[in-house]
Design a protein around this nucleic acid. Structure first.
Lengths: 353, 353
DNA sequence: CTTAATGGCTAAATCGATTTAGCCCAATAC
DNA sequence: GTATTGGGCTAAATCGATTTAGCCATTAAG
């Protein structure tokens, strides 16, 4: 039995038959090699016009089989649904990729090494041209093996120390430093830092930025590291305990937007006023921070710029065979809102003490 | 020149050569047809063991070319980044699809007919096995042509009246009816409805549910329809004007979560207290509503159930050639929070009047 | 007038799988 | 002793493109 659908689609062969020419000629013309292969302008014109009229699209599987290129890029993120940042990157990348003839498949690693490995193996059959990855810890070997196979990779959101690979990240250290300095200059002295128990570069850099700012002002640090893969309730509870054990805290920095969400929850449960009782700044902006009462100061990632760089690096590697390694670091922006207003203005105790 | 990467990958032919058997046999075994084709258990065992050991994965392009199936499903949503609902659906679907050997490519229509048409045409080369689509208005013909080609389609979030096609939607009418009834029974009498100027079924059904509840209690309706593709500022401004022109409003229903966001913005700008001055209920739950002060009552879509049905319908059609049309309608749940507390309890005027 | 160059096009191999048709041998039936 | 059956395996066609090598005129060069 022949494979294929009810409506047999036309092939390059049908076009050749219809126009009385060889499939070779059709292929050359469709691939823009008419001039190079000295096909006459008249014929080129005729073929292009015909192809346009019948809305012919070459079969990608056949093309892929022959050329070894699938025109598919894999976007492998932590979880496309738990961080709007990834969904936004997905959105921007999609547009540019399509306009260049690429499709994007996505998958989520849950930031687990095993899951990521499994996914990479699942796709390892020549059917993915390039990978855009937020790498979980411990995935170095697997990535290296892709690189060895000559497959373009762009790491995003975080790097893998010890691996030379294209990457697009932001200035985590500097932007956190700036945020903490902002709190300090607004009069806060006991600033807590709530983060994940993770050795990934974006997290360690943010912590380093915090530490750097504190050191510079000789302030002591209060760091709470939340375990990975806990429930929201557990996390909120841990932040609540952290605040209870350290009543001296007058400000809190959350190292990601979802930690920010848990933090606000905890603060609400404790009935603390922001920023009167506790100032708040979070990494990663989101609707919640813009709309919350009070509005929450946040470090905003330049999503559009990040996405542009990601797809630029990928297409460079794919189309221009650029094998140089590009490591791009983009600046992030502190959006100052109500939650970090100067302590002296808001805290009436200061006036009357 | 030969195509292919630096590390030439092994093919079914290499396996045959290595084991001294034909590629036919290898293919039969790999496709689980060993029994049917009477390949001896010993040989089957030997091949499977070898394939496992060298971690062989058949080339999908070759498979696809031969079988006419790409094992790729296209998820075509409005915008994967502007509504977490779509990202969540994407996440759930991904898991199940992968476990069944399918990959998912995504794309965003911006809810525009032209964009959707363009995308469908872009993919129309036999390289997509099925489509999961949130259809924009006016896309009926294009969808029908896919159906005619025998390609499985599942419409989601909204249907296309006049088109018989698989679909998974929720009880928009009933759940809105329930939400409005909830407001009415909590003492609200002048309930406004802010929605999009759209004829899509999910929107018209929500409006119908609102109308039904009002009619039943002989209340008058206040409907504000926002234009498509306006800026956030414009929308917030329009909602503000709506509230100003109708000072009698004591409650507001937002027909989507992002409209809810704009609405909260408008209410905040007007310094109205929720629910004292104005009760609020929104369709679609989100973090913002859970964390806001006060917390916002919302109609929650059963994302997981929706996703399960979507992928179930799709895989049924793909694998079991189920050509029956399934139209699934799932219930949604009203999550009652602070923003819709009874008017009489909160509005002290009522007590002292 | 022969050879070389060029223009315009094509036959056939190839990518890596699936699938049809059928080969060969041993066992059983008649 | 021949015909039939079935077990165990394989050769070759095929999917629809790309690409190499080369055919056949015509013109230019020597």
């Amino acid at each position: 039995m022949q494979p294929g659908k009810k409506n047999k689609k036309v092939s390059i062969r049908d076009i050749g038959r219809e126009l009385g020419i060889s499939i070779t000629t059709v292929s050359f013309i469709l691939n823009g090699k008419a001039k190079e292969k000295r096909i006459s302008d008249a014929l080129t014109e005729r073929v292009l016009e015909f192809v346009e009229r019948i809305n012919f699209k070459p079969n990608m599987m056949a093309q892929g089989l022959r050329t070894g290129k699938s025109k598919i890029i894999c976007l492998m993120v932590e979880d496309i649904s738990n961080n709007l940042l990834f969904a936004k990157v997905a959105r921007y990348i999609e547009e540019e990729a399509h306009s260049r003839g690429y499709r994007i498949i996505y998958c989520s690693t849950e930031n687990k090494k095993e899951k990521a490995t499994e996914l990479i193996r699942l796709f390892q059959d020549r059917s993915i041209d390039g990978y855009i990855i937020t790498p979980p810890e411990g995935i170095e070997e697997e990535i290296q093996s892709l690189i060895n196979d000559g497959i373009p990779i762009v790491l995003i959101d975080r790097g893998l120390p010890g691996l030379s690979c294209n990457q697009v990240v932001i200035e985590n250290l500097n932007s956190t430093y700036e945020a903490i300095t902002h709190l300090i200059s607004n009069g806060y002295k006991n600033i807590g830092f709530v983060t994940l128990d993770s050795n990934q570069t974006q997290m360690t850099d943010r912590l380093a930025g915090y530490q750097k700012a504190l050191d510079q002002h000789h302030l002591s640090s209060f760091v709470k590291k939340l375990g990975f893969h806990q429930t929201t309730e557990q996390n909120v509870h841990e932040i609540t305990s952290f605040l209870n054990t350290h009543p001296e805290l007058d400000a809190l920095f959350f190292s990601t937007n979802y930690i920010g969400g848990w933090g606000l929850q905890a603060i609400k449960n404790l009935n603390l006023r922001i920023p009167t009782d506790l100032a708040v700044v979070s990494f990663d902006d989101q609707d919640l921070f813009r709309f919350y009462s009070p509005t929450i100061t946040a470090v905003e990632q330049p999503v559009q710029a990040i996405s542009k760089e990601i797809i630029r690096l990928m297409l460079n590697a794919l189309e221009d065979n650029d094998t140089n390694i590009h490591q791009i670091t983009l600046p992030a922006k502190l959006i100052i809102r109500e939650s970090s207003l100067p302590a002296t203005v808001n805290d009436e105790h200061v006036f009357f003490k």
